[in-house]
Design a binder for these strands. Structure first.
Lengths: 249, 249
DNA sequence: CGCAGGGTTGATAGCCTTCAAGGTCTGTGG
DNA sequence: CCACAGACCTTGAAGGCTATCAACCCTGCG
């Protein structure tokens, strides 16, 4: 939204286009925005190297040295944390335009895995750090990105700590429709499976299924089987919105 | 003058003048640390203004314009998010040495409230931003702080999404003992009430009580009533550690 | 056609919440 | 000194929400 030049082409892989760093970005300049300003990170792509990742493959693993950071060109990535026990938490899903690894600190603290086939631009972290040292605007931009990450983490902590299953699913669907390219109107094509959604929302696969089914029966959403996976359609956005926040009995 | 002047007031681990935005800070210099390096933020206190806050008073409210940021000199602060519904999530507790508001973006996204009487150093955010623009080391330091905040947020999301009540309490006690000044050995004096703990861990007050009671009966912890509140003593750290991670069935 | 993987639905159990009552300590005033 | 109110904490009993276990469906594929 903020960088309109980006969203013009649906599949912005056209070499010249340099999309902004994050899909939703409250304030690209960090403060006192006055009209459309060039993204300080626009020079970054000059240092990029394209990388293709197959579905279900690991981009980087928790604990490994953080040498690179990435920008997603297309596809969907999940950020994962595991317990020895096997329990899993998907901390977030990343979509085209999102950045990953920019906030690493020596080693990665999360694993990054491809939910679908993914195309990335890869940058050397040392290069990015060097650029930031030389340009306060870039440094500021990186701080803004981290701050945005913190905000979304806090929002999700509220979801995990205090919301019911129905509220979590409703919130998730609304968030995804807002972030997905085709999210303008009804349909969302969720690239991730039920288990990924469950591990993202602190639920089980079965509960996710049950809630989705009941939402469909109530007419709040629709579910079809598209060619490349299950498609969810929002039939009653207002209803979903109501469920997402205030749905305690 | 120097950073040490800040920490003198509180018995805080020496050297770590600025333990992460929220918690501990793995690598103060950002990367390639070679021995003890002066904290880039050491010059900050020159711009500080001391502020006293009474117990249960609000330092700043969610949604209000973010004009200031703070460093805690002594006392305990809780960062809170509310739903219209009244449900509450305590996203984190901040202790002496911790920073708050440095990651704000126009407006505060969380409320900051004093759990106990609190003394703060207050900085104007515009000043901090200006300093960061002029000194890459400071800018880098701020990025490291945000990254540390993200890590602790991810850790807590795992806790909220996937851990049982016993595991949450055990994790919480261990984290607090590690962070509290007197945490070297057995006892921790928890400054916050049961309800705050519950809202931090995504539980109810009653569940917190029950789990603490059962831990006491098992001899894992001890509970005494000190002059300024309930005191928890860790009698079996290894046992707690075991409960914190693997306690399913 | 059989198989494998993901998704859906059902029955039961368990963890935690909810509702409720009792307990302990502190401070205040008679 | 004692009574009493109030805040906070603790414990008990019942119920609900979600997990667990299990079966079944559906699609794609060899």
């Amino acid at each position: 939204m903020s960088a309109s030049s980006l969203t013009t082409g649906t599949n912005h892989h056209a070499g010249a286009a340099f999309p902004g760093l994050m899909v939703r970005d409250p304030d690209p300049t960090g403060s006192a925005a006055c009209g459309p300003v060039a993204d300080p990170l626009a020079t970054l792509p000059a240092h990029a190297m394209a990388v293709n990742i197959e579905k279900e493959q690991t981009i980087y693993a928790e604990g490994s040295p953080a040498e690179f950071c990435y920008r997603i060109v297309c596809g969907c990535v999940r950020m994962v944390k595991l317990m020895e026990d096997g329990r899993r938490q998907v901390l977030e899903f990343l979509l085209p335009g999102d950045l990953l690894g920019f906030d690493a600190l020596g080693t990665y603290d999360l694993s990054a895995e491809a939910v679908s086939p993914v195309v990335l631009h890869r940058y050397r972290r040392s290069v990015v750090e060097h650029l930031a040292d030389g340009d306060p605007a870039i440094a500021r931009r990186l701080r803004v990105l981290s701050a945005a990450g913190l905000r979304s983490a806090w929002e999700r902590m509220m979801l995990l700590g205090r919301k019911t299953a129905v509220e979590r699913i409703a919130s998730f669907l609304l968030e995804m429709t807002a972030r997905m390219p085709s999210g303008g109107r009804g349909g969302v094509l969720l690239p991730m499976g039920r288990l990924d959604i469950a591990d993202h929302l602190g639920l089980t696969m079965e509960t996710v299924c049950r809630v989705l089914s009941s939402l469909r029966q109530e007419g709040t959403i629709g579910m079809d089987r598209s060619v490349n996976g299950p498609q969810v359609t929002i039939r009653d956005p207002a209803g979903l919105q109501a469920l997402a926040c205030a749905a305690r009995h």
